[in-house]
Design a protein around this nucleic acid. Structure first.
Ligand code: SF4
Ligand code: SF4
Lengths: 137, 137
DNA sequence: CTTAATTACTACACAGATATAGTATTTTAT
DNA sequence: ATAAAATACTATATCTGTGTAGTAATTAAG
């Protein structure tokens, strides 16, 4: 499964935040830790705070805080927010108006996997990523 | 699962060819039937014939013919040929040097699905796409 | 009040995938 | 031979995701 860089960065940030005891994270810190392009990350953080996943604190001791319970924030929500889920609703063969009664030649083989992919994205929460033994986000 | 347009086009062409009684297909015919950009398709066809999936016949009654047995041509081969499989070997969180003993925070949840995705691509052959009832490629 | 440290905003640059245009080459039919 | 119908090649244009640069706004500390 291929995601955009943007989604990848977003997930890595949230993963890092939920796995840390810290409360507030500066962009500087995130950039250093996660090795993500500085300005790109900052814009992404602003986007995510507008979406309500995180809360931004401006000013001298500012930074970002998780704003939504990690239990109720799913991978699909993050992807949808930062790049739009539409791209993933379409499928391998690029048709629209698909259904079991209007299938392309791949439909029957692909649909079970597609179901699992969507379930994975919609049932895996950020809290799933919490794991004391992990050092890679 | 998101593929590039190029892979999508390639698969649709092969699907159409394997589902038709016809032997030789002109680019013109393919473009009309599959609604793929003309020049883009032509270049793709040349690429695929160089890879040996199809054979091109030049000249006045030319066109393209399936050159490889559909049984032994798998989705993963097509994708690898037209855009390179490397992009798909990387994963959701964008790390490299991954292993079960060097996992990121998503690894445990994702790895079973990843296995299924790779199996789908490497075990689904073009002949699987053959289905008399299908009108959508 | 001024400085320092942070986030927010806006515009631009770059690269790769996708699409288009024009010309050259190959082969068949007459 | 010549014309017609097809593929092959090369160069260029467009679009989108990604990345960079510079400036403005916010807030705490001294
Ligand atoms: S596999 Fe199914 S959902 Fe995907 S393009 Fe074909 S018909 Fe549509
Ligand atoms: S999920 Fe596994 S394979 Fe994917 S980036 Fe994380 S460690 Fe690597």
């Amino acid at each position: 499964m291929r995601l955009s860089k943007t989604s990848e960065y977003a997930l890595r940030v949230l993963s890092y935040m939920v796995n840390s005891d810290q409360q507030v994270f500066t962009a500087k810190k995130l950039v250093e830790t996660l090795d993500v392009p500085d300005k790109y990350l900052r814009r992404l953080m602003t986007d995510m705070s507008k979406k309500g996943f995180i809360r931004s604190i401006q000013g001298r001791i500012g930074g970002y805080v998780l704003a939504k319970s990690a239990d109720t924030l799913f991978l699909i929500d993050v992807i949808d927010a930062v790049e739009g889920i539409e791209k993933y609703n379409g499928c391998i063969m690029g048709h629209d108006k698909c259904s079991d009664s209007n299938p392309c030649s791949l439909h029957k083989s692909y649909i079970p996997l597609r179901k699992q992919e969507l379930e994975f994205l919609s049932k895996t929460s950020i809290s799933t990523l919490k794991d004391g033994t992990i050092r890679k986000f």
